[in-house]
Design a protein around this nucleic acid. Structure first.
Lengths: 109, 109
DNA sequence: TTGACATATTCTTGTATCGGCATGTAATGT
DNA sequence: ACATTACATGCCGATACAAGAATATGTCAA
């Protein structure tokens, strides 16, 4: 078996840096494809193909208007990623956690 | 250009489901390779190869002891992922955010 | 209808993967 | 010294990828 498809899940879709750029750009408001091309200085087919992947994984929504298509990031689709990383929060010892853990250790004595 | 190397960054390393399983397993304490093999029911070479990728991206630490090697998740390395997803938090309209945004809209009037 | 514009798809090419199997290497035990 | 244990690495085949160039689809305007 080869590497999983980029469309298989959010983790794979987001592995591509260009796609992360696109998602960041389209988070606040919707963008027409051509404007994304100009803003990110990518080739138009490249943008379209990345958007296809993002759409397949539910990471963006699309709206047709005349000959333009407006895309917008669907931030909700990123929650699985956020939630997964959050399960490690208690292990990356920031100050709050260190305090918590010290308290736990003290209470065990 | 093909897809970025799995060792190029955390996003690519974590795109593989098996590697996420391994990271989750080794978050709380260190594990010898053989124990991971038994626990996750994967082939030993497969585990070794995944660990190689995880080590290259700093996602795990290793400690040698005799003929065993103990691996442990380095949760800190997951922070970039967490931080990136967090930038979208204000867009996944949960109730708190909706209230915030309504307040902002009101103050703009 | 014809042409211009906006976006999508197809094809090619080089590259990187993942699993499975076999083998290599290093440390321990007898 | 030899066998065994614990991992790592190398090779194979199948698959999927991303960029680039060319082409196709779809929409509006004159």
């Amino acid at each position: 078996m080869a590497r999983a498809a980029t469309t298989s899940d959010v983790f794979n879709a987001v592995a591509e840096p260009r796609r992360r750029e696109i998602l960041a750009l389209m988070a606040a408001r919707e963008w027409a494809v051509g404007d994304v091309v100009e803003r990110l200085k990518m080739d138009q087919p490249s943008v379209s193909k990345h958007l296809r992947v993002l759409r397949a994984t539910g990471l963006v929504h699309m709206r047709c208007q005349g000959r333009q298509k407006f895309y917008r990031t669907n931030a909700q689709a990123l929650r699985p990623l956020h939630d997964w990383t959050s399960t490690f929060e208690r292990y990356w010892g920031d100050q709050l956690n260190r305090i918590k853990q010290r308290a736990e250790a003290a209470s065990r004595k």
